[in-house]
Design a protein around this nucleic acid. Structure first.
Lengths: 119, 119
DNA sequence: CGTACACCTGAATTATTGTTCATATGTACA
DNA sequence: TGTACATATGAACAATAATTCAGGTGTACG
């Protein structure tokens, strides 16, 4: 059962109209959660390094593990996450699997983030 | 002591030139880490809801806790993180503290992320 | 076939993170 | 000064996530 805004605000709320407005504006939970998953994915140094390396060129797991200085197993686990979130895609060439960025948004997010970090 | 690329690649590496290229392209660790902090900050549903609500209008802690349906203490902890990462700023008006987005990049990151999520 | 190699996966361990609870700070106002 | 209220904070606990280790796929090639 959902509490009504009035029930809550009788007790603690200050700006009833602002809160009401914010509630109407608020995105659905499943959208917020997907978005959180996306940013969480980009919120790890190892994964960011992977993404940044792939911005430049496609690479195999073995190469990536050297570039990001992590074990192949760890990289493989991280790549699975990135795949699930559709941040990277891959193609098979014989025994080797080449990874690359899935989507132009990722590069843009990365660069936009960089601008913020560089003040 | 740092391993040289040759030492590593004698054993496991496939595409030496690609790896070398990727290594030169790679960002410094402190930059990658700052970037990871930024995205990590945006990688939590509660914090995303806070940010999204603040995209629309400034709000106080009390209001926010109702909007994101979380305790005031939890919201306050999250706001500290967002403050530290310079995602939000605040102004005091008597007893009440109003929070707002610090930087236009945040809104852009948010919207860019939304586009990815909506395929 | 069977071996070699690139990669994947599950379970266990360790490290991080989010929330709660109790308490502290700072401001307004009687 | 004392009380009320909005917010902040530290410590503790519970939930999640990252890495390692020990196998397990799938493909190439003799």
């Amino acid at each position: 059962m959902t509490q009504s805004l009035d029930d809550i605000c009788q007790v603690r709320c200050i700006h009833t109209e602002k809160v009401e407005k914010a509630r109407q504006y608020m995105l659905q939970d499943n959208i917020i959660n997907s978005l959180a998953e996306l940013f969480k994915c980009m919120g790890d140094p190892t994964r960011l390094k992977i993404l940044h390396a792939l911005q430049q060129q496609e690479l195999c797991v073995c190469d990536l593990s050297v570039v990001v200085n992590s074990s192949e197993s760890a990289v493989s686990h991280q790549l699975r996450l990135l795949r699930t979130q559709k941040l990277v895609k891959f193609r098979r060439d014989g025994k080797v699997i080449y990874y690359s960025l899935d989507d132009h948004h990722i590069g843009m997010l990365f660069n936009q983030g960089l601008e913020h970090v560089n003040e």
